[in-house]
Design a protein around this nucleic acid. Structure first.
Lengths: 227, 227
DNA sequence: GCGTTGTACTTTGTATACAAATATTCTAAC
DNA sequence: GTTAGAATATTTGTATACAAAGTACAACGC
């Protein structure tokens, strides 16, 4: 770990601020798998007492980002290749459900939001700004999730995305995949416009599968490098 | 609320005991939707301090069984008809994934476990012991989840089942559905034996759909009665 | 050298104390 | 009778205190 910093000084309970801070740190990889989450240490580093830290840890634990052993404390959850494959499988199923529902429920307004997003996405891809690419990509999927009209599904997909994100940044560095990405998004939007359920699902399947393959490649590379 | 009681006196941190206690109470309906979860009150009732209560609440919150408003505290999450439909949609998608995976990975041993379960299931149905029927039904699905070989999927399905369970007991009181239940389980086991993916998925879809319809009926009836 | 035990040190688990925010009650004015 | 506002009580948020479990390491015996 390095320099954690509480930023969201908004009027939120500290436990939520701590939770978001630690969550981000884990997803971004600042806190590495296996790294221990020691209450006193974190409390000192974040300038709060142990109480909010403990509550944040309980939340992380329930979300699967931390594992705790009674009387030993918590550590950042590891994420093996198998784990990631499991997550990707689930994500595919849910993403397909989302897009299927979106196909029924999407509004004109949401479609124009998607079009706007597409334009912005292409722009950021031209700039090769990875951070922005990721943001726009997330926004794209968020619009679709929203259109699905199933809040719980949105929750679950966001959670899964968190898990995937732990490898995803790497994935987005593969510039050769950019044109493909844009085209896939394009197809999905077109499908939603014409409300062609089968087509949209097939395109989404491809999109998710491509990403899954890419991520698995990254993992393989990373693992090889480590050995 | 009525008489909560800490039973699991095993060597577990109190937060986990409290968590399980409250979770059960919510799922069984002893703690009703909208009912406030007041720390001091719960602490007194369970004979512990606020600290484990608070941590348990954070866990419940993350699991969607409680909602908290900062500075106002937590209450048992309500579950509207729409919520339940959302959950059932997700559950169908994941249950289909599980059975598809199980079809590839199921072992001979697991198949005989399913056969054993079928026998026991039919027996309990003859006895019309609702509690046992529920148990055997859960066991049936658990074996399949296990066979899917995706631990995270198991986690998520268990969580969803919790949500559904809040209505499910009622559902199982509908005796006319029993023969149907058995037959559906039978078909699924047969499909798994012959590893016929399409067939198993179709049967599972029917099984889940039937249950979904039944639950929605219950909800309608319950809502009507309340008005 | 190797394992064992005992002691000091960390770290978690739980309870409690105090402050700040929210809800409630009571009073007073209209 | 109703409403506004102050006083009071409740309730959450955070910090801290203390006990118990776990860990590390050195001294000891084999």
């Amino acid at each position: 770990m390095e320099n954690l910093e509480l930023n969201a000084n908004a009027y939120l309970p500290l436990r939520d601020v701590v939770f978001h801070t630690l969550r981000e740190a884990i997803l971004k990889g600042d806190l590495k798998p296996g790294e221990r989450l020691m209450e006193l240490q974190l409390a000192a580093k974040l300038g709060v007492s142990r109480t909010p830290i403990r509550e944040a840890i309980r939340m992380l634990q329930q979300e699967g980002l931390a594992v705790t052993v009674p009387r030993r404390g918590a550590e950042v959850a590891g994420i093996s290749q198998k784990d990631m494959e499991d997550v990707l499988q689930i994500r595919e199923a849910l993403e397909l459900l989302a897009v299927r529902l979106a196909c029924q429920n999407v509004t004109e307004e949401q479609i124009s939001m998607l079009e706007e997003n597409m334009a912005a996405f292409e722009e950021t891809i031209r700039k090769k700004d990875i951070k922005e690419i990721a943001e726009k990509d997330i926004e794209f999927h968020d619009i679709i999730f929203e259109a699905a009209g199933n809040p719980r599904l949105v929750m679950m997909l966001n959670n899964l995305r968190g898990q995937i994100y732990r490898y995803r940044v790497e994935y987005l560095k593969a510039e050769e995949s950019y044109p493909c990405l844009v085209q896939e998004h394009r197809s999905i939007v077109d499908g939603l416009k014409s409300r062609d359920k089968e087509y949209v699902m097939e395109m989404t399947r491809r999109h998710v599968d491509n990403q899954a393959k890419a991520i698995k490649n990254i993992i393989r590379q990373t693992d090889d490098r480590q050995e």
